[in-house]
Structure formats: structure tokens, C-alpha cells
Amino acid sequence: MPRSHAPSRRHAERHRTQRVGWLRAAVLGANDGIVSVAGVVVGVAASGASAQVVLATGVAAVVAGAMSMAAGEYVSVQSQADTEAADLAIERQELASEPRLEQEELAHIYVQRGLSPALARQVADELTAHDALAAHARDELGITESLRARPLQAALSSAAAFAVGAALPIGAALLAPLERVTLATTVVTLAGLLLSGGAAAWLGGAPVLRGALRVGFWGALAMAASHAIGGLFHVAV
């Protein structure tokens, strides 16, 4: 007797592309919060400013930076969302006016991806009958639900991550003696950047060490530049 096979349960798959929308904004925000605020703190401290001025400047940089990151991410991603909406509107109109040509276009796409003409036409027919706009959005325009532009999500992720990242140099400036602010901020910031870069690489499926060193290098370079510029204006405030 032929062996009967019970239907296998569908295995759950966890893909990292679903994190792209918020992960990119969060990583950018966190790294920018650490580097930019640390640069401000180190630069102002190197100029000979008092502890109160260093702290006030750092807090002001956190507020301004978080708002700037949120606004920048929202405007940028909203532009992408507007473009997607405009393309979908065009596609919707073409499907209404020339459905047969659109169906042939879909079949041609599948032939280019390796299907035989007969199978490509069958796939195009069935997907068109199911949801023509979704099929064209995915396979012609490259718009998928997991990668759709989400402006508000990007803005909130970026601003929150900026504030969290900026807490490291602010905390170092607050707790360290004035003569040690530069050293403390540098050490804490580099540690935070290494952790941030490594965590971002791990979440994205990239090599952790490479991601950590890449972020740490550019952060160290930014702080060195800020310290050098601050030293040019060595005045007591």
C-alpha cells in the first residue's frame, strides 16, 4: 500500500526585511544621538566652558536633535509614501482602462523571471482574478506590505532612538568632573557606539564585529574633530 503522508504543518519563518522600516530609522537616530550630542559636549568642554554650560548645551542638543530627526524622517519617508500612492493610482487607472494589456504585462514579467510563457500567463490570470492591483504593486512596482513607507513609524523611531542614544554622553557629562568630561564622554560614547553598531548588525543579520567597528570608527572621528575645533576657542564661559 502506498504510504500516506499527513499534511505538514507550515513552519514559521522570521525574515529581517520586516524590520527595515523602523530599524533603519532607529539605528540612524541612535547613532546620530550618540555622536552628535557627544561631539557637542566634547567640543564645548574643550573650549573651557563651565559644567553648567556644557550640560545645558548638551540638553539643548538632545531636544533640537530629536525634533530634527523626527521631522527629517517624516518628510523623507512621507515623500516615498506619496510616490508609492501616485504609482498605485496610475496602476489602478490602467487596470480599469486596459485590463488585458496589464494582464499581458504581468505575464511578461513572470516570463522574464524564468517561468514558461504558458505558466506565466496562468499565474498572471489567477493573480489578476484574486487581486490585480496587489499583483502589479508587488511584481511591477516592487511595493510590498512589509516594505511600505510608514512616515509616522520612522519619525517616532528615529526621535526616540536619538534621545536614548544621547542619554549616554549627557549622563557622562553630568556625572564626570569637569576636567574629566572629555575623557568620560569619549569612553562612554565609544562603548555605546560599539554596542549600537553591533546590535544593529545583529538585528539586520550582518556580521556583528564589522558593524560595531564601522560605527565606532566614524564616531571616534567625529569626536576628535569636535574636540580639535573646540580647542581653537579655549575661553572660559
Rank of each mutant, 00 (worst) to 15 (best):
P117Y: 10
Q112L: 14
L152C: 00
H130G: 00
I109E: 06
A159V: 04
A149H: 05
E145F: 00
E145K: 10
L119Y: 07
H136G: 12
L152N: 00
T144I: 01
D131T: 07
A135W: 05
A159H: 01
S158A: 15
A129H: 13
V123T: 15
A124C: 10
V123S: 11
L156W: 09
H108R: 11
S158W: 03
A118C: 03
S146N: 05
A132Q: 06
G142I: 07
P151H: 07
G142S: 09
I109H: 05
D131F: 09
A155S: 08
E126Q: 15
H130M: 09
P117F: 06
A120K: 11
L141H: 10
R148I: 02
D139V: 03
G114P: 06
V123R: 12
R121I: 01
T144N: 06
T128W: 07
Q122N: 12
E145N: 07
D131I: 07
A107E: 07
A159C: 04
L115C: 05
A155Y: 01
A137M: 07
H136R: 13
A137Y: 03
L152Y: 02
L115I: 02
A155G: 03
T128G: 10
A149S: 13
A107L: 03
L152K: 03
Q122R: 15
Q112A: 14
H136D: 09
H136V: 08
Q153I: 07
P117L: 06
A137D: 07
E140H: 09
V123P: 04
E126T: 14
L156S: 08
L127V: 11
L127A: 11
A159Q: 00
L156H: 02
S116Y: 00
A124V: 10
L115H: 13
I143N: 06
